[in-house]
């Protein structure tokens, strides 16, 4: 799980200060949530430039709407909801099929135990290089519907629990689990050759 322990009180204080016009407090929120939201948006769009544009709009929207944020949910859930909704709208506008950006794959992947395990065996199919695996992963993700992709991104990549995802998407936990099940089954078909 990649999810860090959050301090809701810290967010509350920053939100309160930002509401009174403290722009530095809002900057703190931007700095804190950009990396997380980047992962969310990037894994849904598969394009760095689009991700940057969407994220800029997300924070601009959040800044404008901050006065309407009543604190019934955490700031974390609220900003995630804005990000998911804006990304889904963006994807609808853009259309589903577009070339994917794979230029900026982090070389840190080579040190990941899961990756080593997935590629180390002598089976010729498993000797696929990093780029190909990354490309296949991205292609497989892009084959999913936007709703399914959002759930897979939040659960599998970002490590959010079902309950948190259900709050962000405004659906039941059952729906989250159901979407995950179908998404995993679909991914299993696309990535069959990389599995054990």
């Amino acid at each position: 799980m990649t999810q860090r322990k959050r301090k809701p009180d810290e967010d509350k204080a920053l939100v309160k200060a930002a509401k009174t016009g403290d722009t530095e407090a809002f900057d703190q929120l931007v700095i804190k949530y950009t990396p997380k939201l980047y992962g969310l948006v990037y894994n849904m769009t598969s394009n760095h430039e689009d991700t940057n544009d969407v994220l800029q709009e997300v924070f601009a929207k959040a800044y404008k709407s901050l006065k309407r944020f009543r604190g019934k949910s955490t700031f974390y859930t609220w900003i995630y909801s804005i990000s998911v909704n804006m990304t889904l709208n963006f994807l609808k506008k853009r259309g589903r099929h577009r070339k994917m950006s794979l230029d900026d794959v982090d070389s840190g992947i080579q040190n990941d135990p899961d990756f080593i395990e997935a590629t180390a065996k002598s089976d010729p199919v498993r000797e696929t290089n990093i780029s190909e695996l990354q490309e296949r992963l991205n292609m497989a993700m892009m084959q999913l519907s936007e709703d399914h992709r959002a759930v897979v991104t939040m659960f599998d990549i970002q490590g959010l629990p079902h309950a948190e995802i259900s709050k962000i998407l405004g659906v039941s936990e059952g729906t989250v689990r159901s979407r995950l099940f179908y998404a995993h089954r679909q991914l299993q078909n696309y990535l069959e050759e990389f599995r054990k």
């Binding site: 990649t2 700095i31 950009t34 990396p35 980047y38 992962g39 990037y42 894994n43 760095h48 991700t51 940057n52 900026d104 794959v105 982090d106 840190g108 992947i109 990941d112 899961d114 990756f115 395990e117 997935a118 695996l133 990354q134 992963l137 991205n138 993700m141 897979v152 599998d156 990549i157 970002q158 995993h184 991914l187 299993q188 990535l191 990389f194 599995r195 054990k196």
Partner: peptide, 19 residues
Amino acid sequence: DIEKLIRLKRYEQPPEGYY
């Protein structure tokens, strides 16, 4: 297995200095 493979995508990061 699929979950493990998909988790690899967390290593995709923006260019250095982006944040």
